[in-house]
């Protein structure tokens, strides 16, 4: 063994051991518990399918993640497109502004949405003040509140990859399309959109993956009935101590995350990367 290989192994050993012990081992153990090891049984998983309450939680989680992803793509794509048309300085400012909320605590961001969307919150007061409504509209403690806050937190996951894909398109392509007689709309549908589809798909997948695992937002913005899978896991661990059920839920969430993440990684080589901002 050469000295540099040995060095690499030593360098590698400490972090690898750490991640294996405190991340991989607990996860593997949780999967084992969900399967009833040392015996092997799928009873816990059968319950997930059979009990209507659990099916409803899965349905809601998928629906919320899917709607948020769609909203983020539809709203985020044109925003990224606009930023791509800006000059260098404007682009940097816009990117900085979009990244800024990441510095704000996740809890605080949810808290602000609670304050803005509650019955006596700013949004309702503005709507009543404008005379559009007479009694407050219920904007939180329901799925709508969860969706608004989640979209607020997940939009950058779409905007950044789409922006990267847009900026990677050589400007000559659009000029060529225009000089061949295509108008703006035709150039967009035939040149820009196809060239950014992989980047958009990657952003959408990432949004969906992250959206599936949301815990804080449904707990704060949703009502008692807006539980998502993550909340059901926490409930079973912290309140009722049902480990097999909690771990069958968490294993299903883990498995879908891993599968989707591999799909995301497979997409990456086809995503044109951002060369220069």
């Amino acid at each position: 063994m050469s000295r540099s290989t040995l060095n690499s192994l030593l360098l590698f050993g400490l972090p690898a051991l750490f991640i294996a012990t405190f991340f991989v081992v607990p996860l593997v153990n949780s999967v084992a518990v969900s399967l009833g090891v040392p015996e092997f049984t799928l009873a816990a998983y059968r319950r997930l399918v059979d009990v209507p309450v659990y099916r409803a939680v899965y349905g809601r989680t998928l629906r919320v993640a899917l709607i948020v992803t769609l909203v983020c793509v539809v709203v985020g794509y044109p925003c990224a497109y606009y930023i791509s048309t800006l000059g260098r300085r404007g682009r940097i400012v816009a990117i900085g502004l979009i990244a800024l909320p990441f510095m704000l605590s996740v809890l605080v961001r949810n808290y602000v949405w609670m304050v803005l969307l509650q019955d006596t919150g700013l949004v309702n007061r503005l709507l009543i003040g404008a005379g559009w409504i007479e009694t407050p509209v219920r904007l939180m403690h329901n799925e709508l509140g969860v969706l608004i806050a989640m979209a607020n937190m997940l939009l950058p996951y779409v905007i950044f990859p789409v922006l990267g894909a847009l900026l990677a398109i050589p400007p000559e392509l659009r000029t060529a399309s225009a000089s061949l007689g295509a108008n703006g709309a035709r150039t967009f549908w035939r040149v820009t959109l196809p060239l950014t589809s992989a980047g958009t798909a990657a952003g959408a997948l990432l949004t969906f993956i992250v959206g599936l695992g949301f815990y804080i937002t449904p707990a704060m913005m949703g009502g008692a009935r807006e539980m998502m899978v993550a909340n059901l896991i926490a409930f079973n661990v912290r309140d009722v101590l049902n480990w097999t059920l909690a771990f069958s839920l968490s294993t299903s969430l883990l498995a879908s995350t891993i599968v989707l993440y591999f799909a995301y990684r497979a997409l990456l080589p086809r995503v044109a990367t951002l060369q220069a901002i």
């Binding site: 991640i19 405190f22 991340f23 081992v25 607990p26 996860l27 153990n29 949780s30 518990v33 993956i209 599936l212 695992g213 815990y215 993550a230 896991i233 926490a234 661990v237 480990w243 909690a246 771990f247 968490s250 969430l253 883990l254 995350t257 993440y261």
Partner: peptide
């Protein structure tokens, strides 16, 4: 650890 939902990591770590 950044991709796996934190609830999943938290539950499995809590158990051990």
């Amino acid at each position: 650890p950044q991709i796996v939902p934190s609830v999943v990591i938290a539950a499995s770590a809590y158990f051990l």
